[in-house]
Simulated assay, not measured.
Amino acid sequence: MAKVERFEDLRCWQSARSVVRLVYRLSQKGELRKYYDTQRQFRRAALSIMNNIAEGFARYHPKEFSQFLNVAQSSVAEVKSILYVLEGLSYFPEPELRQIHLSVDDTRKSILALIKYIQNRQNGVSEPSVGYTKQEVPNHHYILSLPKKHL
């Protein structure tokens, strides 16, 4: 497995980036184009996921990194909530929304797995749970990768 040296190497950040692309594409279509405030909030929430992962990675202490990851996973919930609003208003076909729901769920799972791993490291648990592999990042971070079947 490749060593994680940049936030761009994190699986959760890559997944969040995919969510941002999907959200931007969807927000340029249909009825949502007319509702600028909702469109902007949807985009900001998606960007917040990706940006908080990156910002947390740049922090020196794992506890701070975990806090930023918690904010990122909270932004995932915000994106999900907006998706339910869009679904309830029938702004988009269900298959389109389902694709984003799945992507958002995968992103949340990978963020929560990383949070759990960091917390285990802080609590002196030296080995991650079954199914996780660890990668050490220079200076301060221990990053996990989940096998693809878990994401």
Results as ranks from 00 to 15, higher is better:
Leu86Ser: 08
Asp37Gln: 05
Val125Met: 10
Gly30Ser: 11
Arg33Tyr: 09
Gln73Arg: 15
Met50Gln: 10
Glu8Met: 02
Leu26Ala: 06
Tyr142Met: 10
Asn52Leu: 07
Gln67Arg: 14
Tyr24Asn: 06
Gln119Lys: 10
His101Arg: 15
Gly131Ser: 09
Val23Gln: 02
Leu32Lys: 00
Asn51Asp: 12
Ser145Asp: 12
Asn123Leu: 15
Pro93Arg: 11
Pro93Ile: 13
Glu136Met: 07
Tyr36Thr: 13
Lys149Gly: 06
Asn139Met: 10
Lys134Leu: 13
Tyr60Asp: 08
Trp13His: 13
Ile118Leu: 03
Lys34Asn: 07
Phe68Pro: 01
Val20Gln: 13
Leu32Ser: 01
Leu112Ser: 09
Ser126Arg: 13
Ile118Trp: 00
Glu94Ile: 15
Ser75Phe: 03
Ile115Leu: 00
Glu136Val: 15
Arg44Lys: 14
Val85Gly: 02
Arg25Trp: 06
Val104Cys: 11
Ile143Ser: 09
Gln99Gly: 03
Val125His: 02
Lys80Tyr: 05
Val71Trp: 01
His150Gly: 00
Lys109Asp: 09
Pro93Thr: 12
Ala77Trp: 07
Gln41Thr: 14
Glu31Trp: 00
Gly30Thr: 07
Gly124Asn: 10
Tyr142Asp: 11
Pro138Glu: 14
Met50Lys: 03
Leu22Arg: 01
His141Leu: 10
Ser126His: 09
Ala58Met: 02
Gln99Lys: 15
Leu10Gly: 05
Trp13Met: 06
Ser81Met: 08
